[in-house]
Amino acid sequence: MTTTTDTSAIPEDNPVLRVPPASAAEAVAYFRASLTFHADVSDVAAALAVGGDAGFVVIDSRSTESWDQGHVPGAVHLPTALIPEQAERLLDKAVPVVTYCWGPGCNGGTRAALALASLGYRVKEMLGGIEYWIREGFEVETWQGRERRAADPLTAPAGAECGC
């Protein structure tokens, strides 16, 4: 496959290429940086499934009512508003933290990550939040125990790895 760098051949009304893509070097820097700040639910689940020390702690930054509806097994409940007063009691600054909230339409995990980073913690945000955790068919924990819903075939290929 060949690509062109001649932008004169691109129609002015092309909404995708109206602003040209970054150079390869700029793209490498951007996407590498993105991966330093984010983890997806499948990667978090795979790391936790190995057992033992995953090398990070998962923080659920939602309200108590939301936490009670179901959360990532083994996660620590630390609502964003309580981070300044409780983080040092609950977390070790030497251990990376992965935050999450509801889902892609919510920036609560981002706000929690910012609050923790401001206190000196190394943080990643789990993309998709608890919504995609559940949609991909991973177990959630409630006060009644663990439960698993069927995976959404639009987010998790049935019986196959996504290949990413």
Rank of each mutant, 00 (worst) to 15 (best):
M1W: 04
T3E: 08
T3S: 10
T4Q: 12
T7C: 03
S8G: 05
A9R: 12
A9P: 02
P11F: 03
E12K: 13
N14S: 13
V16C: 10
R18L: 03
P20K: 03
P21D: 03
A22H: 13
A25G: 12
A25E: 14
E26L: 12
A29K: 14
Y30E: 14
A33H: 14
T36S: 14
F37S: 09
H38L: 06
S42D: 15
D43I: 11
V44Y: 05
A47F: 01
V50Y: 04
A54S: 13
F56N: 03
F56L: 01
V57I: 07
V57W: 00
I59K: 01
D60L: 06
R62E: 05
T64K: 11
E65D: 15
E65H: 10
S66R: 05
S66E: 15
D68K: 14
D68L: 15
V72M: 00
P73N: 13
P73C: 12
G74V: 06
G74T: 05
A75T: 00
V76H: 01
H77K: 08
H77M: 10
A81I: 09
A81K: 14
I83P: 00
I83C: 06
P84M: 05
Q86L: 08
Q86P: 08
A87L: 11
R89C: 02
D92A: 11
D92P: 02
A94N: 09
P96I: 04
V97E: 05
C101M: 02
W102K: 04
W102S: 07
G105C: 04
N107Y: 05
N107A: 03
T110L: 12
R111D: 00
R111H: 07
R111A: 04
A112V: 01
L114Q: 15
L116I: 01
E125W: 00
L127D: 07
L127C: 02
I130T: 05
Y132Q: 11
Y132V: 01
Y132I: 00
E136F: 01
F138M: 05
V140F: 01
V140L: 08
V140W: 03
T142D: 05
G145E: 02
E147A: 10
R148C: 05
R148F: 05
R149I: 11
R149D: 08
A150M: 12
A151K: 09
A151R: 08
P153F: 11
P153Q: 12
L154H: 12
T155A: 13
A156F: 09
A158H: 08
A158K: 14
G159P: 07
G159D: 10
E161M: 13
C162F: 07
G163L: 12
C164M: 07
